[in-house]
Design a protein around this nucleic acid. Structure first.
Lengths: 335, 335
DNA sequence: AAAATAATTGCAAACGTTTGCATAAAGTTC
DNA sequence: GAACTTTATGCAAACGTTTGCAATTATTTT
């Protein structure tokens, strides 16, 4: 670092113009003549100048920062290490950057309950992206009601006064289940907790397919972790034996947990039990047998999330939107 | 949001004191009488007040923000979706929060090459945590030379003028290899790119164990992705057949890719080929057979990273530090 | 009880931008 | 070439905190 940090005024003196001119030039304001703008920008680069964002934010009341909150339920073991959620965060980061926005990573611990206050009133960020609806929408609703620019990754069919972007979980659940039925499965388990918003929709999709096929639904309600899935399936096998021939898992991690329990008992996948997951994480392709899954287009979703947030920042409103999903057919469900 | 955003001055008027008093009270400055402090804090809470961080940062020249840069090599396919790197980011987030610091998530795309300038001069953050050394240390070195408070997650044995915190990769590589040798493997592959700092150390550990055992080293240099590993092993099997009986993989994702290639050809793990990974990600435990791995204590490392950054922020210096590692013995290497 | 000390609080000047308005320079029209 | 428009720049006032120093009040000492 230089012994003295350059500021706008210094740069202005160097160039023999006023600070306003430099400020406008660096912000590419067309009020300033093109040549002057270019000259000043080059000078800034030459001297390694960079604007003091604190001052800029104070004066302009804009931060160009978006807070991303990973929204865990307090009751779950699902952690910040959940690969799918982190993947979504990664994609959002990319999408934000492409719009010149920065990402303040946060969680319920840091932000407390009053998000409007913590992020917006304090000028930490201009808007909020919430990853995951969680079981309890209170905080989200409060923030939205306070007029905070806000978008949520979750189930877009949930009625809400804020835009939710996410996959069509109902259709996903139905597709997965129909696929299992088509593969010849008669007794298909739903593995996951229907109390959770997105998973609930998947469950209803499952239910729709099952009832259409006049089969009997069967839920094994567990936490969204592979460990819980492993234990759940293990216990079921111990207590009741192999009483099913298909599993629709609420996530890939859960599916992989189940897969392990089955493989340990030499239950063949897909011959004895056909298996479909949800999310299409990297591991789905690399597991053996590879895991059929409902692919969520997180990249597209992230771009749309950011677009909708941007719209709100510019005073427009935005609606929930469903992202297309796709069944990725792999070995775990092939008959 | 209220129609009028409360500021310090308003709160002061409400309480009948000066702004300085409120400011000090909220910052828990002992200059202010305890009762007054408590009273004012309560008043602030009551009115849902929160400080304007932009103003506060401008005046105090401190942001309480730490930039975290995920440092990818341009030549690799390793992406922001890499579960291990994201796990580290998650842990760092927790460790930062515990110290009242916030996390600005960034990457080389946003930050450009001049990190000192982009993050520090601009007052976006007080310090930087770099996740991953990458192949080219230029940017890191430049930032450190500029006097930026900086810590790096990487290989702590790398000579540097900035503190690096990370696992003892050499010992990890040696342990893993010795473990494979002890399991009876004679021809052990090293699967990974030794040109990368951390992986290079793992490779040298491997080499040390191999030469001590008077065996022959054999490197399959691939990118750090499971896909590359899958293809690499596949190709090797096609071209030369099963010419090895052990694999020391440079990461778990790589190991899992290799595992898939082996399983597809009905090569038994661990009987035909014993396999050890590195990182101990969640999937290691849930794969089948479960994957032996060198566990990196990312949580402890994150806490230490933050401590060392904090030390620098307070003007002290900090040294590189080695984090203990541990072999987690699972099925993939059992004989 | 005056003097000295300690404990509280207030005043006012920063921090470094951005931006409405005024001004100066250049170009256009009649 | 005067009057007007257009284009380019500068002036100076915010934005909402924090903090050195001064001022006030309460406490102790002599």
């Amino acid at each position: 670092m230089n012994n003295k940090q350059l500021k706008l005024a210094d740069l202005a003196k160097l160039a023999g113009v006023s600070t306003s001119t430099v400020s406008r030039a660096l912000n590419d304001n067309p009020l300033i003549k093109k040549e002057t703008r270019d000259k000043l920008k080059q000078l800034a680069k030459q001297h390694n100048f960079s604007l003091n964002t604190a001052a800029s934010r104070l004066r302009s009341q804009k931060t160009n920062v978006v807070a991303v909150i990973i929204n865990f339920d307090s009751g779950t073991e699902q952690s910040i290490n959940d690969p799918f959620l982190l993947k979504v965060v990664g994609e959002i980061n990319l999408a934000l950057n492409k719009q010149g926005l920065e990402l303040l990573l946060s969680n319920s611990f840091m932000a407390g309950d009053d998000w409007a206050n913590y992020f917006i009133n304090s000028r930490r960020a201009d808007g909020i992206i919430v990853v995951g609806q969680g079981k309890d929408p209170t905080n989200i609703e409060a923030a939205a009601a306070a007029g905070v620019p806000l978008v949520v990754w979750g189930d877009p069919k949930t009625p809400s006064n804020y835009p939710i972007v996410g996959s069509d979980n109902f259709v996903g659940g139905r597709l997965a289940t129909e696929h299992l039925l088509a593969a010849g499965a008669k007794k298909i388990l739903f593995l996951g907790d229907p109390g959770h918003a997105e998973i609930g929709e998947r469950y209803r999709g499952y239910l729709a397919a099952i009832t259409t096929a006049k089969a009997t639904p069967h839920v094994v309600s567990i936490d969204i972790t592979s460990r819980a899935a492993y234990q759940g399936i293990n216990q079921l096998l111990v207590e009741k034996g192999l009483c099913f021939d298909g599993i629709m898992a609420c996530s890939d991690m859960v599916a992989l947990g189940a897969m392990k329990a089955l493989k340990e008992r030499y239950i063949s996948i897909p011959n004895d039990v056909a298996l479909v997951g949800f999310d299409d994480i990297a591991m789905a392709d690399i597991s053996h047998p590879s895991l059929s899954s409902i692919k969520q287009n997180t990249q597209q979703a992230s771009v749309i999330l950011v677009e909708k947030l941007l719209a709100q920042l510019q005073g427009h409103s935005a609606e929930s939107q469903v992202i297309e999903i796709e069944l990725v057919n792999r070995q775990s469900s092939k008959r």
